[in-house]
Amino acid sequence: MNLFIIKCICVYFSGIGFGLIVNLPHRALNVAGITATLSWLVYYVIINTWGGLGAPNFFGGLTIGLVSVVVAHIKKMPSILFDVPGLVPLVPGGQAYNTIKNFALGDYRVAFNYLSEVVWIAGSIALGFIVAELINKIRIKIKYVSRGWDK
C-alpha cells in the first residue's frame, strides 16, 4: 500500500517532468500530471484485476484520450498538450530495453519475445487513442444534430 501511494506520486511527477522537457505552457503542467495519474490508475486497476497486456494498456490509452479532450475543452488548449505527458507512464520502456539488451547479447529468442510484447502494448495504447477519438467525433456529431445544425 505504501509503495502504491509512492507510485501515484511518482506518476504525477513523471507527467510534470515530461511536460518540462517538451515545454508545456505553465498553466497546463499541473493538469498534465493529473491526466497521467488518472490514466495510470486505470491501467493499474485493470492489470491487477483482469491481468494480461492488451486490456490494461487499451483502457489506459482510452482514458488519456478522453480526459485530454475534456480538459482541452475546459482549458481551451489543444488536446495534444495533455495526452503526450499522459502517455509517459504507459510506454513499454522495460520491455523495449530488454529487447535491445537481448539482441546485443545474441539471445534472439528472448529478444523476439520481448519485441512482440512491445508491439502488442504499443498497438493497444494506439487503439485506445483511436477509440477515444471516435467517441469524441460521435459526441461532436450528436451535439451538432441536437442543435439542429443538420450537418
Binding site: C10, S14, I16, G17, F18, G19, I21, N23, V88, P89
Partner: peptide, 17 residues
C-alpha cells in the same frame, strides 16, 4: 529546469516500472 524535468522523468519511472 528542463534538466530537472529529465531527472524527474527518469527517477520516477524507475519506481513505477
Amino acid at each position: 529546469l528542463q534538466t530537472v524535468g529529465a531527472g524527474l522523468v527518469s527517477g520516477t519511472l524507475v519506481v513505477v516500472f
